[in-house]
Each structure stands twice: as C-alpha cells, then as structure tokens.
Write a protein that binds this DNA or RNA. Sequence first.
RNA 1: GGGGGGGUGGCAGAGCGGUCAAAUGCAACGGACUGUAACUCCGUCGGGGAAACCCUACACAGGUUCGAAUCCUGUCCCCCCCA
Length: 410
Amino acid sequence: MMTYQPKSEFLRTMIARGFMQDCTDLEALDEALLEGIVPGYIGFDCTADSLHVGHLTQIMMLRWLQKTGHKPITLMGGGTTKIGDPSGKDEARQLLTTEQINANMAGIRDVFEKFLTFGDGAQDAVQPDNAEWLDQLNYVAFLRDYGRHFTINRMLSFDSVKLRLDREQPLTFLEFNYMLLQAYDFMELNKRYGCALQLGGSDQWGNIVNGIDLTRRINRNQVFGLTTPLLTKADGTKMGKSASGAIWLNADRLSPYAFWQFWRNTLDADVGKFLKLFTELPLDECERLAALQGADINEAKIQLANAVTTLAHGANAAAAAEQTSREVFEKGGIGDDLPTITLPAGQTSIVQLFVKAGLSASGKEAKRLIAEGGAKIDDVVVSDPGQMIDLADTLKLSAGKKRHVLVRAG
RNA sequence: GGGGGGGUGGCAGAGCGGUCAAAUGCAACGGACUGUAACUCCGUCGGGGAAACCCUACACAGGUUCGAAUCCUGUCCCCCCCA
C-alpha cells in the first residue's frame, strides 16, 4: 500500500504512468529529488548490438529522469557481460569476446542517442562502461575489501539464486559473483558521479539492494533503488517478442515500418498501459484513447504506433510507416516502406519468389502457403505452385493478410 | 569410486524391432469470423519435387537384422541414489 504521496515530478510521473513496482525508500528519495539533481543509473548487458522493446520500459524511465531535471547514466556492462547475470535465466550464457562486446556497446549507444541527451552538462546523460573498473580488480584485494560485506547466507536467499538451486540447475561461482560486481558498480558510480539511484526491472531487486548496502558501508552514502513491474501482455505472453523474433529498436535490425506494425497490433487491453509507459502523451489523453470502444480503439493503436516510432526512429519514419500501412491495409495498395527486395529480372518460379522474399522459410513452406490460399501476388491469390512468373517490374507479394514484401526487378 | 535413470521435431513430452517423418500439448503459419483485434472454429506444421516419389532425421560412431528412434558395443553429455 502506498501511503506516501511523492512531490517530486519524477516520482509522480513514475507512479502515475505505471513504472513503479517497488522503491527502497520512497520518502527519502523524493526529498533527494526535490533537493537537486539526482544521477540515476540502469545497467545494460552488451549481449547484442541493439536494444529491444523489452528494454523500453527502462529506457523510458531514464528519459523521464532526464526530462524531470536529473541525470541518466546508462551503464554498459562491458565487464559484467563477460560473466552473465543469473537472474531469471535457466542456464549460463555463452561468453562473448571483448571485440563483440565493444561493437555491441556502440550499437546500444546509437539507440540511447535517440532517447537521451548526452554531454558534459550536469543533467546530460553519460555512458560509462563497468569494464573501466572491473577489469582491473585485484582478486584478493576485492575479497578482502568487499567480500567481507556479503554473507553467503544472504546471497543464497535471493530469488535469482534460489531459483537455480531449486531447479537443480548449475549455478557457477562465476555467475554467483555477478551480484557482487553489480553491487560494486553502484558503489563505484556513486563515487564517480554521485549516483544515488538505481533503476531496474523487479528481477533486479536483490542486486539493487546489495548495491545500496555496499554503498552505504563503503561510501557512507544513502542511495536508492526503484524497480519496474515485470511487463506482460494481456494474454499472458511475454512482451517484446513477435513471430520473427525480438522487436529491435535499431532500424538496421528492424525496419521502422515493422516496428510501427508491432505497436499497431497491440492487444486492446494493453493499449492504455503501453501508451502510458512508452509514449509521452498526456495521461488524460492516454486514458481517453484507451477507453475507445470497438473498432475505434484502432485509432488509439495508430497513435501509439506513431508516438513510439517517433521516439525510436523520428517523426518522418513514423509518418512514412503510417502512410504505408494505410495504403496497404486500408486501400490494398503498396507503400514505399514495405520491405523490399531486388531480384534479377526474368522468369522465376513463384515458390522461389516467396522464399527469396523471406515470406517462406523453405520451398516446402511456400508451397504449403500457396495450397492454403494464403499466397498473393499483387492481391491475386496464387493457385498453382508450379507457375512461373516473368519478373519485369515491381510485384507485391503477400503471405496472409499482414505480411507483404515488394519485389523489384533489378 | 559403486548403483540406477536418461539424451526424440522450436519447446514440452509419447513411442521402445516393421503400419514412424514419429502420438499429444504449446508455440508458429494459413483460412473463416472481425476492427490489420481478442475469443472461437477449421487446416497446416523436416527438406527437395508439379506429381509419382526421393532424401535427411529420434546425442555421436559403429554393429546385429530383410527391416532400428526402438536390440548390441563404444564415445560424449545430463540427472538421481550410495560412498
């Protein structure tokens, strides 16, 4: 039960928009936020060269932090990625090379540039890499200075550890150390940047609390933690995955059109929640849109798609995606934003066309699609799998009602 | 170190000499319905081929059989119990 009503804009926003799950000390954090600039951080693994929709809650929190007058720190886990966080994972992850990690870090930076303002100012975002301090740790010195502050009894009580032990899945000592290093990160960020807040998903609670304790003991500073609820869709499935994989925030990995479509296809019941979390539309507008009934709620989904795509890819990309979507879905036409492939002009079998366009994983699958009546070329149902087609101009291939690809003769 | 159980399709999980490209569930894909929904229903769901049909698959390598996911031998990996 939340009895305390925060006064700071940041916390009020977090609560009102549904970001808040738990806070270590709401009242004291609120005071700190009212007093001055609070640097707050979230750590990100460097396991891929982009971030995806699953990270978007965290990204938006940092954006709000900056918008409400504070300093976001996007900590790159260049050091900890070499270890792997056991939280919520069933198995140890495979280790990445330093080169891969560095490349990934650059890609992630590109994503953050869209959401945050980086620089040297007091409220500008910074992006340190924990390899800066973790790589040079001396094992014995670390154990002596910091290891003494962690008891095995306590560490064993964390859900992330318990889960693995209960399932009798191996938890290596390497992974077991992850939480020490994350705690060390918080302490180090407190030293370097005066960082006083760690944000994260609710699965990070244990790690965050460890960092708070360590910072208090070593630095003698009070710092805070705030977690977000685990995000699930109304149908119970995990947020951020689609048929074709993760919904990346990077245009190289997922086109703005596909990104827009992802949001356009939000479940009715999720529209309000997503508007609040992933857009900056005023709350009353979010509520008005979410309350639309029947087919009218499609308008809300378009607004959602436009707003989120604008944040991630810019207003032009969002407008183009919307335009193409209207052409394709409302008029049955084509749009520039549709995924496009170029193939040599001439005779091609339809089956091969669908495979090359990425609409079918194999020829077998393409034939199946045709047999089921789901394959269309320029909106005409294909009936003969053996048919050859003369590729001379541009064709629109459709697999079902939603997946369309343009094929150009080149 | 000793004893026992197991590794099957994206996942879960049957099969235990032929009728098995392998039950069932989930996921996925297509269709109907609709709002580019949800729910429900129907269909499909290893690869190649227009098709007949062929190929590759049940941890890996051999072997026994007319015939093996199913039996034998060896290798690797996982789990349980005892010490």
